[in-house]
Amino acid sequence: MVMMPPRAYAFIGLNIVRILSIISLILVFSSNIVTLVHDVKAVNSFMEAGKVASTGVSASSGNATIEALQDFDYITGSTVPNQPAGAFWAVLNRLFIIGQTVVLILSEIGWPSKFFTRFFPVLGKEFGLGALGTIQMFLGAAILSHRVDTFTLVSAFFMFSLGCLNVLLGLIFREGAKSKRSVTSWREHAKSALPTHVGPVDIRPMVNAGERYMSGKGGALSEAWGSPPPFVKNLHTGSTTTSDGKTEKSQFSGLGFGRQGEKAAASKGFLISKPVESLPKYAPPRPNQGL
């Protein structure tokens, strides 16, 4: 069995928690939409029942029915409190929860990263999973604090559990949690383990061919190796190659840097002057060597 490095296990584990977190957020998003629809229907039914009671034949029986309806703390079959503007705040609360779940899903996906880095840094790449888990716990507690249906209850409890797990992972991995589970950072780490530069070009075969040609001096070795490249010919004969491909003989070819080269340079007007000997002012005068 091939053992993977510890970083691979951390990458797989964090991404499993990431997928489960996205699933829990999607479930909470769906369940809150369902609850919102049920609340609106329950509020409409409650208002219709109040209108029917107020338009009854007997005023006393109608007033009794309205008082009976007002005794309930919550509207029947909903999570809306039976108080002034209760329906408004209940609907607004559900819309806030739906909006927050959308933001958390996008932060888990990591898109758009620049938006979160600039406007919501705690959900960006520079922070860990602690803030994400805390928000999930707050949302789960807000949903579970009301009497809801089974689907919403299970979804909220599942998200609350994932929020606790994200807080724990945030304490363990701290700010490096999101970078450890990122697919792009994993690819960059894999590329860094491989060489990303090309080494120098091996020119030894060309140099060896030139040396063998020069040692052969146009004999059997030159015939065996064929015609040498132009720069080898220039090294051997002391000539230069012009831009049009013609080869010209250099005027100082074969003279080197010895006495012959100095004579050839002097005949062309190029003289080498020797520096004048000088002594520092504090040095004693040199004795006359002729005496």
Rank of each mutant, 00 (worst) to 15 (best):
P200H: 11
P287V: 10
A283E: 12
I33N: 10
S113V: 08
K217H: 07
Q100D: 13
I203M: 13
N63H: 08
V122L: 02
A142G: 04
F252L: 09
E67S: 13
T152G: 10
L27D: 15
M4C: 03
K274R: 11
S107F: 03
D202F: 15
G269N: 04
R94K: 15
L221Y: 01
I272M: 09
T184H: 05
S161N: 03
A87L: 00
A177Y: 02
F127D: 08
V154M: 01
R94M: 06
N44D: 15
H189D: 15
S185I: 10
M214N: 05
V207G: 05
L139D: 08
F157K: 01
Q289M: 05
A68D: 11
F72A: 15
E248D: 02
A53H: 02
T65V: 14
M159D: 12
D71A: 15
F29H: 14
A10Y: 03
S60P: 03
N44E: 15
L20D: 15
L95Y: 00
G245S: 06
V167W: 10
G199I: 10
L106M: 12
P284H: 00
A49D: 07
P230I: 05
L129R: 07
W89F: 14
T76L: 11
E108V: 00
L25C: 14
L132P: 02
L279I: 03
A266P: 05
G210L: 08
V37Q: 12
L14R: 04
A265H: 02
S31W: 04
W186I: 10
V103D: 03
R204P: 05
K191Q: 14
F157R: 03
V34D: 09
K114L: 06
T152M: 12
G99R: 00
R204G: 12
V43M: 10
I66S: 08
